[in-house]
């Protein structure tokens, strides 16, 4: 059914910390690795070793430059995967019932056997979180690694999404946002977590944590002299002066 549940028992999702993401793309690669062998059809690539490679990925890292009015520009790496929105427009537009939001945990999934590959859900998502598989011609999206988080065949420590498990900087955190005392809820409260494009009224579950404010030291850092003049004293000064005289 592509009508949305009125509420879900849990709200599973991710917190992505833009302060610590180093833009290494490890989560992107591990997401592809896990999901190409897990839920649904493999995640295909076309022309993978050619001049114009292209393929379906469920998680991508963009890099932005932010220039404050009174400080130098800074770089923010920006991981983006499905936000498992509460009012997911991608679900309601689906004509086949392939796209759905689960009532128990709020995960948004595609039943690939029902998907006709019309692409309308990708048009409805403001965040670019859905990509058509170029070989299977069905819609692909982040599954929140449903085949890991409940998987009793893997060690407990691995029962989190692949991207969360692999991030070397711990920039991605997984948890239940319906519980105000969960780690993710507290992180969002402490750090001022925010929604992407709230004006699209999608009510994303995933939250982003802003970069921590940069310090603006009042003393400018010791300036490095631009001229070649050397003011060395002692032995080095003697060498300098001796060489000068040669």
């Amino acid at each position: 059914m592509t009508t949305l549940p009125n509420s879900t028992d849990k709200k599973l999702g991710l917190v992505i910390d833009l302060d610590v993401c180093v833009g290494c793309h490890a989560c992107v690669v591990n997401c592809k690795e896990w999901n190409t062998g897990g839920y649904g059809a493999p995640l295909a690539d076309e022309d993978a070793y050619g001049s114009a490679p292209s393929g379906a990925w469920l998680n991508r890292i963009h890099t932005f430059e932010i220039t404050p009015e009174d400080a130098p520009a800074s770089i923010v790496h920006f991981p983006k995967s499905c936000l498992h929105c509460e009012d997911a427009p991608c679900v309601t537009v689906c004509p086949t019932g392939a796209s759905y939001k689960r009532t128990d945990d709020g995960i948004v999934l595609v039943d690939e056997d029902k998907c006709i590959g019309c692409g309308l859900c990708a048009w409805a998502c403001p965040y670019g979180a859905r990509e058509m598989d170029p070989v299977e011609n069905v819609m692909k999206k982040c599954t929140l690694c449903v085949d890991r988080i409940y998987n009793e065949n893997i060690p407990e420590v691995d029962r989190v999404p692949a991207c969360v498990r692999t991030c070397p900087a711990e920039a991605r955190h997984f948890g239940d946002f319906s519980d105000p005392n969960s780690d993710v809820s507290r992180m969002v409260a402490d750090r001022g977590g925010f929604d992407l494009m709230p004006e699209q009224n999608t009510k994303p579950v995933n939250k982003y944590l802003p970069p921590r404010p940069k310090s603006h030291p009042s003393d400018p850092s010791p300036s490095i002299s631009k001229s070649d003049a050397i003011n060395a004293k002692g032995f080095l000064g003697w060498v300098d002066r001796a060489l000068e005289k040669l």
């Binding site: 430059e65 009015e69 802003p210 970069p211």
Partner: peptide, 15 residues
């Protein structure tokens, strides 16, 4: 708004 970072400064795609 797409990145949520507009409050810090002018946001521009780098890569």
């Amino acid at each position: 708004t797409a990145t949520g970072l507009g409050g810090i400064g002018n946001v521009k795609l780098l890569e």
